[in-house]
Amino acid sequence: MPADDLIELRDICFSFNNTRSILDHADFDLRRGERVALTGPNGAGKTTLFHIIMGLRKADRGTVRILQNTCASEQDFAAIRGRTGLLFQDSDDQLFCPTVMEDVAFGPLNLGASDADALEISRKTLHDLGLSGFENRITHHLSGGEKRLVALATVLAMQPEILLLDEPTTGLDQDVEIRLIKILQNLPQAMVIISHDHAFLKQVATRQIRLQNGKLVSDTPQ
């Protein structure tokens, strides 16, 4: 396996309650520096694929290798979760601390940072995203766009090597979307982005894949 493979999925099968097959011997690779767009019809299993990569759902068969580690048990996944950042579809799921600052500091604290370091990292992350001054805002009083950016900050504060973004632009107005595009273009991390917004993907992604009938197929426009 080449050293720059960040995610390697081989022969992944997944079904809900053994009835509806979602993933059918799917293969996927993510290399350093790539920004992959993942498209597909509603209910095709794009979010499920992310959950399998994070170890939140278990594949029926197949191997998951993240950052050169084969992940099978909860412990394996727990070890790499700090290095892979997942942005959830609904930011309300992701922001569970009362204030923005605590939410952003939550990840670094769990990764063993000291109080002072966690505050420093959080402040810097918020500043980098243009969210300075949001530290003491109440998470559930934020607007939809602000929530999304703060959720992104909570993920970035863990300084992950891979980003998985689940429909990052849904519900955002044009201004916030443009801001998000700029942010994503400037991030060094390799990322996979689920979205139905083709104009957005065109500006951000380096290649496109499509999830269809349980398989991942290349869909990069020629």
Binding site: H51, M54, L56, A78, R81, G82, T84, G85, L86, F88, D90, D92, D93, Q94, F96, A105, F106, G107, L109, N110, L111, D115, A118, L119, T154, V155, M158
Partner: peptide
């Protein structure tokens, strides 16, 4: 369902079962 998604979101950020509060 939401509670399930929240615990997932927390796990993704390295949650081990308790909150950290500043001293």
């Amino acid at each position: 369902e939401r509670s399930e998604r929240i615990i997932w979101a927390m796990k993704c950020r390295g949650f081990h079962g308790h909150y950290h509060f500043a001293r």
